[in-house]
């Protein structure tokens, strides 16, 4: 039990997918202008990432490894992830038009969210078992959501601040992301045992 909790903590905070592994930067900068959109994006990503971790684990262990097709891993993963995202998009469009309006064009962005593929590949690299893979996906996604929402909060405030012209927009967002990353370095070496 403790082990799984630690795994969650470690993937969410210490080895944060955005701030430490630098994955998923496009949605991090793209969908962080409004807190509401960030929350929606975070939830959708959490769902997809967990789902993708599970699906790719199954694909890897039940198809690619037995057939010795490791070289097809990236292609196979991309296909599975793209299909999962498409499915989620359709389901959301039907079940929650409001959420769909909020996420809008960003849902397809999850397809190309390198965090999703990255986490799936890291799972293989780590040789994780099924439960570990699922938790790793979920923990990474939680960390992604946490940082995305924090960042969106700051950006909403920055939108009202008198940022100098030279820094306004993307530059100040990147500086902020850097400072956020600096703050998260406080967790480095976190050892709960």
């Amino acid at each position: 039990m403790t082990e799984y909790l630690l795994l969650l903590m470690s993937t969410a905070v210490v080895n944060n997918v955005i701030l430490v592994k630098f994955l998923g930067l496009c949605p991090f900068l793209g969908v962080s202008k409004k807190i509401d959109a960030a929350i929606g994006m975070g939830l959708a990503t959490t769902f997809v990432l967990t789902l993708a971790s599970v699906a790719t684990w199954m694909l890897d262990h039940w198809l690619l490894v037995p057939l010795d097709l490791g070289y097809l891993r990236i292609v196979g993963f991309i296909v599975v992830i793209a299909a999962a995202v498409q499915f989620v998009e359709m389901a959301i469009k039907k079940s929650s038009p409001q959420l769909y309006q909020v996420l809008g064009i960003y849902l397809p962005l999850i397809t190309t969210n390198c965090a999703v593929l990255g986490v799936a590949l890291l799972n293989v690299q780590n040789g994780a078992d099924f439960l570990h893979a699922t938790l790793y996906g979920f923990g990474s996604a939680t960390g992604f959501t946490l940082v995305l929402i924090l960042f969106a909060g700051i950006r909403e405030r920055l939108a009202l601040a008198a940022v100098p012209k030279a820094f306004a927009g993307a530059p100040i967002s990147l500086i902020t992301a850097g400072l956020l990353s600096l703050a998260f370095m406080g967790f480095s070496g976190l050892n709960l045992t």
């Binding site: 920055l158 601040a161 940022v163 100098p164 500086i175 703050a183």
Partner: peptide, 10 residues
Amino acid sequence: AYGGLGQNPF
């Protein structure tokens, strides 16, 4: 970089 006094989040 944030615009001086009062604008900085950190």
